[in-house]
Design a protein around this nucleic acid. Structure first.
Lengths: 211, 211
DNA sequence: GTGCAACTTTGCAGCGGTTGCAATAATCAA
DNA sequence: TTGATTATTGCAACCGCTGCAAAGTTGCAC
């Protein structure tokens, strides 16, 4: 069966979760800087050396895995949209999908812990945003495909398409930051995805100073 | 006389410049990671311990001082604009002013060295953008003032003003990132401020998918 | 179950960034 | 010149992080 993972894999996943739980809870108590890898490892029941077999840096354990682009099907759906949705809204849905991608129940509490910690520590949220450079680059390429699919004549000017795709991507990330900031500022009340919709709706009006 | 600085201040400034020159040139040769504080200090003619009297971290010496908001007069001019310029364009000019704020001849070559290094190392540019969180926060407050000055009735809804100001600020930083990326991707040919104008012009059209 | 191959954990030694502290040296102001 | 102020430095120590090799586990074929 596919789901039948060996003992090894199960142990590794458990350790990975234990480490993240340890670092998140300790950081919640004492702040990110105030926690040492030695303490984290002790709390997680491993040696300090082993910590670095699971995460390349202390920071990586705190900010968690960088979201990846979603499934190829979702990507194709974005590229070949039916024209009823703006490019920015398409990006929003694409990224909202990766954000809520918390299928594994074991890891759900990790996500909640992390979200709560990032909410209290804007610096950590910045770290997480900074760790998304690869995702940004992937997204730029995807948006290029969408722009050309929307109007194939654009393929004649790849420079302009690239530039426009990059601008749209950067602006989309600005929208995400905005949604997160508003959400965190209000103590995390209300739905994050609702905030996301509100922020992206505002984005559409950016060119106008009358709102 | 005002310009007559004491020996102490002059020495401090010279050391500060020497450190930056050292770290930038060494990083240009061997990459940021490949250079140690010990080497930098030796090159700059100081002890490693003294290095940390001038910069809190190695990173700080590489990315340089975070730009500050410009003079109060420039800020007031932005807040009480005559309505012929959009808010985004106002932000652009405000920040372009701080970027070209390279009055001191002694430091001009430092700025050029740094710009060239950041151009080759996108990770370092990211570090620099990340170090601008304080500037962002200051700018949000300034944009709030501008929004209320544009239409005093808005003062009745500070929440919305705050949210809008934040969105405009984040989008403006997206524009700056975009301008820098385009400039760096083309090997730094052409003027950075020209790119900035092009990127902000594009920003005005963000809501429309027909461009 | 035995035994070997593959993989994981760990200790250790070491590098590099960073800090507090106290001694020393340089500058300044009267 | 002298005394106060400030800057530089060495030193010891902490912490994040890495390579390496020894020791422990798991997987698998027989």
């Amino acid at each position: 069966m596919m789901g039948e993972l060996g003992l090894r894999e199960r142990k590794r996943m458990a350790t990975r979760v234990a480490i993240q739980r340890a670092v998140l809870m300790l950081a919640q108590e004492r702040g990110y800087e105030g926690v040492t890898v030695e303490e984290i490892s002790h709390e997680a029941g491993i040696s300090p050396r082993t910590f670095f077999n699971y995460f390349p840096t202390k920071e990586a354990a705190v900010v968690g895995d960088v979201p990846r682009l979603p499934s190829p099907e979702a990507m194709d759906a974005f590229v070949h949209a039916d024209g009823t949705q703006s490019v920015l809204d398409g990006i929003r849905d694409l990224l909202a999908g990766t954000a809520d991608n918390e299928a594994k129940a074991e890891e759900r509490d990790i996500h909640l812990l992390r979200r709560s910690l990032l909410k209290e520590n804007p610096q950590l949220f910045s770290l997480r945003m900074a760790s998304m450079r690869q995702l940004e680059a992937d997204l730029v390429a995807l948006v290029e495909r969408r722009l050309v699919a929307d109007d194939p004549r654009r393929a004649a000017d790849p420079e302009t398409v690239h530039s426009r795709a990059r601008l749209l991507t950067y602006v989309a990330f600005a929208g995400i930051r905005h949604a997160w900031s508003c959400w965190a500022e209000h103590g995390g009340s209300g739905s994050l995805s609702l905030r996301l919709h509100e922020s992206f709706a505002q984005l559409q009006t950016i060119g106008r100073d009358d709102w």
